[in-house]
């Protein structure tokens, strides 16, 4: 319910308010960074953990802050796979594609999720509920294959267990939505 209202407030707020939020954030956060080139990546990381992704406004604001052309910020950001340029879905599903997970069948887990969610890795579903991602190694290879859902690590996955987790989330979401609608009426 609360989540629902949050979402609608986000969509009603215009573009200028993103720029304002970014400015506001940088005014405070900027204090802990030196105005040197060295700060580009840490600033981008801080911005991403604040906003969930890097809207254009962030790049421009950081460029102004460091007194460099925005293209330089874009250039650095685009090299690193950590950075996202679109808002991620509400639930982040990350499958490990490291070696240990690969030989224990993580490829089939990805296939199953791709099929079930209808999106490819690094995409977000049209309803904004799920983002599917793959990473190189979570670092818990002993429990391969691994899937991380909203920060919680699930070990020893199979296509079936992965799908069950998705079904559970999606069920909870549709129930919550249903509740919202009834409330509204």
């Amino acid at each position: 319910m609360t989540k629902h209202t949050k979402k609608s407030s986000r969509s009603s707020s215009g573009k200028s308010s993103i720029a304002q939020r970014v400015e506001q954030w940088l005014r405070i956060a900027g204090n802990s960074f030196s105005k040197a080139r060295e700060s580009i990546i840490p600033l981008l990381q801080a911005a991403q953990s604040e906003f969930g992704f890097l809207p254009n406004e962030v790049m421009e604001a950081i460029a102004r802050f460091l007194r460099v052309p925005p293209a330089q910020i874009q250039g650095v950001a685009s090299f690193y796979s950590q950075f996202r340029y679109e808002a991620p879905g509400k639930h982040r599903v990350t499958v490990c594609r490291g070696t240990a997970c690969h030989v224990r069948g993580s490829g089939r887990v990805v296939d199953e999720l791709t099929m079930w969610l209808g999106i490819k890795p690094q995409e977000t579903s049209t309803d904004g509920l799920f983002t599917l991602e793959t990473v190189a190694c979570v670092g818990s290879c002993a429990l391969a294959p691994l899937m991380v859902v909203d920060g919680k690590v699930h070990g020893r996955q199979t296509p079936a267990t992965a799908r069950k987790t998705m079904e559970k989330i999606s069920m909870a979401e549709s129930e919550a939505n249903h509740g919202d609608k009834e409330d509204a009426v």
């Binding site: 240990a100 190189a136 670092g139 818990s140 290879c141």
Partner: peptide, 11 residues
């Protein structure tokens, strides 16, 4: 940086 997928000693 431990980028080698399948390695977690450093971690």
């Amino acid at each position: 940086d431990e980028g080698d997928p399948g390695a977690f000693m450093d971690r």
